[in-house]
Design a protein around this nucleic acid. Structure first.
Lengths: 308, 308
DNA sequence: CAACGTTACGCTCTTCGTAAAGATG
DNA sequence: CATCTTTACGAAGAGCGTAACGTTG
């Protein structure tokens, strides 16, 4: 069995069972990929892929298990290379953060700036996505760490460290009736068309639960993953915006009025997620400490230790 | 990076940093091993081994970490092969149990016999050792499961399933004063020379703790890992035997008298240990259920699930 | 017939084993 | 000087790419 074969398998699945695309992604020829897959199936004495004639149509049951193991092997090989990089030049490397728009735009910039000063030789990548995508990028190893709220803690490949608490605010145009409408309640809020994050009402998230516990069914007219998009549509008078407190910028958003709603919703916690079995480079510890000062290197390692 | 290289590294370390022996164990030439080690060190850009001139004298810090990862990769490759075996012929394979003498000799035979009837095509191996060796064989993958008492539960790579409870007895020659000396106490026991398991007094085991809690310092004159050895020396009048209840065979040991001491020591639990990340073949589930009927396949999987 | 997977074949690069030389204690 | 590691070199083998062929929808 060769490492190459496992990589090929992995890529074929990643490319939706398309050998041609996988070969392209791997910068190699497609007959080569085809051949190696046949070879490993022959060596293991079973079919990994379900086939309809020559087309791949799915994974067999053992194939699925083999793929999970192959993925771990590939990650470990990656980890070995990182150990090499870390010790040959600790200050140099790549670092990919997966996060949501709100974090990337309003919470991370300070940490990112400090990080880039501290580690000028590290190439930093920020991947943006909804919380589920963030979690999956970290699980798959596409991103080194993920920063998002709540939902990432359900993956048990990930170690989740609480970073900070936050709550929400409502933003409305300055001439909106809510501006002078007295203390805000859930009932009042539910009476207006709402514009908020597109994942706020998927699954049992805190916002949707708060409304439904109060027997309310808010009228969400528009959703986006992007706080700036939400604010734009609020400015146009299309509805009332409900977003993270940190996403309101008093200087920039002068055409909008912010109304705190901490009393209506429980605090949320933003978590930092990292694969339990990943090799953590020195600068990654550095970044973690920048955004969550209570997690220094020792604290992270301790959390990793107890999570097994 | 090649799988072969990781295997070479692993074997060199296993052979005590001796390339020559490693090459022999791998059925290949020693220059080949030497070369591949150089190549991987070059690829990673660091030294894995500390060297004194040409001799290997130890692992560097990154080398140690690389070796841990390499070991996991090797185990995962092994797991992949097992998935193949399981699905191509579920009834056929190898199965290695690491256990202590007492378990192997007095507790497992019934399960082993039933297992061999049920899976005649499985090659069964029993490795014997003290509890620590048992645990380490399972951790390293040399054995598939380990069966021993207490001490194996401290390795966090292992999932430990409680199998059964047991207690101890004292055995003495038939004409020994303790036979008609009324109810046995710790004090009386401590007054005689003791012969028992050689790990019973290492670390904080239950037996040593029981004595020390009572302020007693028993006189252990001889220890062995083998219950039969203990009984032999007891027969010779060299001391009083303290061993597992199950190790006394009423029919065979007619020259010895058994005195129950369940009232002096708390029950011990025998655990079955298995690597959390191992692929478990169908017949392994079968064996587990034979020695611990409360752990059927689902129960084992459930325990694995919650242990992450 | 367009997209995709497999077979065939020649080329290149890698790996392996033998033989010999260089270090170490 | 016995043991161990590295260097050198020729032979065997594995993987890759191009081209051609067979299938699927």
């Amino acid at each position: 069995m060769k490492l190459h074969q496992l990589r090929y398998l992995h890529e074929v699945v990643k490319q939706g069972l398309n050998i041609t695309n996988a070969a392209e992604a791997l910068y190699t020829s497609q007959p080569g990929v085809s051949k190696q897959i046949q070879l490993i199936e022959e060596e293991l004495g079973l079919q990994i892929f379900k086939r309809n004639g020559k087309r791949l149509t799915g994974l067999t049951e053992p194939g699925q298990q083999i793929l999970n193991l192959a993925a771990r092997v590939i990650r470990d090989i990656e980890n070995i290379k990182r150990v090499g990089d870390e010790f040959s030049d600790a200050e140099k490397g790549m670092f990919t953060i997966a996060t949501t728009h709100t974090q990337a735009r309003y919470k991370l910039p300070a940490a990112v700036k400090a990080f880039m000063n501290q580690y000028p030789q590290v190439k930093l990548n920020i991947h943006q996505g909804n919380p589920m995508q963030v979690a999956e990028q970290v699980v798959s190893g596409e991103a080194d760490i993920g920063i998002a709220t709540e939902s990432i803690s359900s993956y048990d490949e990930l170690l989740c460290l609480p970073c900070y608490h936050w709550n929400r605010c409502v933003v409305v145009p300055n001439d909106h009736p809510l501006v002078h409408g007295g203390p805000l309640t859930l009932e009042k809020l539910a009476a207006y068309p709402l514009i908020t994050y597109d994942f706020a009402f998927t699954g049992g998230t805190l916002v949707s639960k708060t409304f439904s516990d109060a027997g309310l069914n808010p009228n969400v007219v528009l959703t986006a993953i992007d706080a700036d998009v939400i604010k734009t549509y609020v400015s146009l008078g299309l509805g009332v915006g409900l977003l993270a407190n940190m996403a309101y910028d008093a200087e920039r958003d002068i055409n909008l009025t912010r109304i705190d709603v901490s009393h209506l919703f429980a605090d949320s916690t933003t978590y930092l997620g990292i694969r339990k079995d990943a090799f953590i480079r020195g600068y990654m510890y550095g970044f973690i400490e920048l955004i969550a000062p209570h997690f220094n290197r020792q604290a992270v390692n301790a959390a990793l230790k107890t999570s097994d």
